[in-house]
Design a protein around this nucleic acid. Structure first.
Length: 498
RNA sequence: UCCUCGGUAGCUCAGUGGCAGAGCAGUUGGCUGUUAACCAAUUGGUCGUAGGUUCGAAUCCUACCCGGGGAGCCA
């Protein structure tokens, strides 16, 4: 048995491929079967005078996603997907699939999500999962090379750690338990044992968020390092992200092409240092004339585009009546595109005034909203690191800036193109007394944090860490518009199956 | 929880007060090189649900259900 991604080393040899029918086309004496085997696609040519009547007829019964074994000669041919095709000498049908629901035409999100277990077989979804795997492995490789130990934080926790986010509640024998929203506090304990550690696991948030950036269950990578300050933390986050992007560019070009990803953005992110700006600088930028003008320009651009595509829509609708059949199909397709684009523009036009107001009226001390992040990242073409946030909006365990007590030594990495926050982290407070004060200020139950406070009693050291959201990172690198396509079976508001 | 857009054939959609439509999928037939193949024929409907307005409702009104996008919150 040979896999499709190995065909280049079997040119002119006879091999057997096992897989599923991705698509097929037929005429009287020849079938074209696009075979999918999990490693790629290969067109198989089944000709009547090559395989005989029985095998030819069997091949004719194969519908989308039927399973099959095809033996034949590997021939280089640029007309085929992947550059090679198989000239069949034998066809063995394993199972004929009837009425596979996902056809090669367009489908809506709801339908595809209901059929997620099958949707995973489609080409774009396949490519996204291949890239996800490469990202996951690259993250492990990076940290292992850097001398980090992978350690796992518990998934059941006894307390709602930071007290801010809504957690999933469950039973733990006779006690209440919560699904973890972060392994960080445990990460700090583990870093005091091993120096540099990282966790790689699922986290859960019961927030009722319905956006393209949210899942209720997602995977997070959380490194934690003893003797690291904020600058070392930022250096590490940048080095890791660049390693990951570079690895994907090196190993997954073909998949990025299937996803129609604009590679130039990734190449810049891999090569150029990330912009680093303080929260205060970011606020100034939001309130600047430059930002106001940019939004103004965006609004007029959208309005002009709307006018021009509406004119086009009128024109092609007139043409439709007298058009030939193939042209009609072309027009129908274009009409659909225009309707979708109009919806998008109308939404932008509703949003832009709100964004303008949010940016121009932004007050120092507040946290950035989704639109503020988008506006900030639109002005750069690499990821942006924003550091030193107002302590008020950040978690209790973050260390204050010795030069300005109102600031926390926090960092966020914002991905370009509106993908939002992919990394959030900080230098941690290492003083026992200050931490006790903070816990009291936040009205957190001190007894639940006794073990955490022990870390400051017994050899406390400056230390830092961050959390990387895997799905948001995959979405950004793949250029996907929604995190639901970055994980095999997404869990989100209103979606528990399949 | 709030704002906003939507729900019409298996799928994607058109139809905005007067006979329920198209493309694809399915089925049947035709065609040796197709690339979302093509050509011909054909099957397929609780117009999200309930109520109301009207001579007449997919279309207008009310409530509810479901989905998309966003706010808040966040990775």
């Amino acid at each position: 048995m040979t896999y499709i991604n190995q065909l280049s080393s079997h040119e002119d040899e006879s091999v057997t491929l096992k897989g599923w029918v991705y698509n097929s086309r037929s005429s009287k004496a020849i079938h074209f079967i696009e075979l999918r085997d999990g490693t790629g696609l290969c067109q198989c040519i089944v000709a009547l005078d090559e395989v005989g009547e029985e095998a030819f007829e069997a091949a004719g019964t194969l519908k989308q996603e039927s399973s099959v074994e095809i033996t034949g000669k590997v021939v280089k041919d640029d007309r085929s997907v992947g550059g090679y095709e198989l000239h069949a000498s034998g066809v063995k049908v394993i199972q004929v699939a009837e009425n596979y629901p996902i056809t090669p035409k367009d489908h809506g999100v709801e339908f595809l999500m209901e059929n997620r277990h099958l949707w995973l077989r489609s080409r774009r979804q396949w490519a996204a999962m291949q890239v996800r795997n490469t990202i996951q492995f690259a993250i492990h490789r990076f940290f292992q090379q850097e001398g980090f130990i992978q350690m796992d934080a518990p998934i059941f926790t006894g307390n709602a750690a930071e007290g801010t986010t809504t957690l999933f509640e469950t039973e733990y024998f006779d006690e209440k338990a919560y699904l973890t929203q972060s392994g960080q506090l445990y990460g700090e304990a583990m870093a005091m044992a091993h120096g540099k550690i990282y966790t790689f696991g699922p986290t859960f948030r019961a927030e009722k968020s319905k956006t393209r950036r949210h899942l209720t269950e997602f995977w997070m990578i959380e490194p934690e390092m003893a003797f690291y300050d904020l600058d070392m933390n930022m250096d590490l986050a940048e080095k890791m992200l660049q390693f990951v992007v570079k690895t994907v560019l090196d190993e997954k070009r073909a998949e990025l092409e299937i996803l129609e990803r604009d590679i130039s953005v990734l190449e810049k992110a891999a090569a150029e240092p990330f912009k680093r700006i303080s929260y205060t600088e970011a606020v100034e930028q939001l309130k600047s004339d430059k930002t106001a003008n940019m939004l103004e320009q965006m609004e007029t651009d959208r309005k002009e585009e709307l006018e021009s595509i509406q004119t086009e829509l009128e024109e092609i609708k007139k043409e439709h009546g007298s058009a030939k059949k193939w042209r009609k199909a072309q027009i129908d397709q274009r009409i659909k595109e225009i309707h979708a684009r109009i919806d998008q523009i109308e939404e932008d036009l509703r949003n832009i005034p709100v964004w303008k107001k949010s940016a121009a009226g932004f007050e120092w001390g507040a946290d950035f909203g989704g639109s503020d992040e988008t506006i900030l990242t639109m002005q750069y073409d690499t990821p942006v690191m924003v550091h030193r946030y107002p302590a008020e909006v950040k978690a209790f365990y973050m260390k204050r800036d010795p030069e300005d007590e109102s600031l926390a030594l926090a960092l966020d990495v914002l991905a370009p193109e509106g993908y939002g926050e992919i990394v959030g982290g900080s230098q941690r407070e290492d003083s026992l007394e200050i931490l006790q004060e903070r816990i009291a200020e936040h009205d957190l139950p001190e007894d639940l944090f006794n073990w955490y406070l022990d870390l400051r009693k017994f050899g406390s050291v400056p230390h830092s860490g961050f959390g990387l959201g895997l799905e948001r990172t995959v979405a950004w690198i793949c250029g996907l518009t929604h995190v639901r396509e970055t994980i095999p079976f997404p869990r989100m508001l209103g979606r528990l199956r399949p």
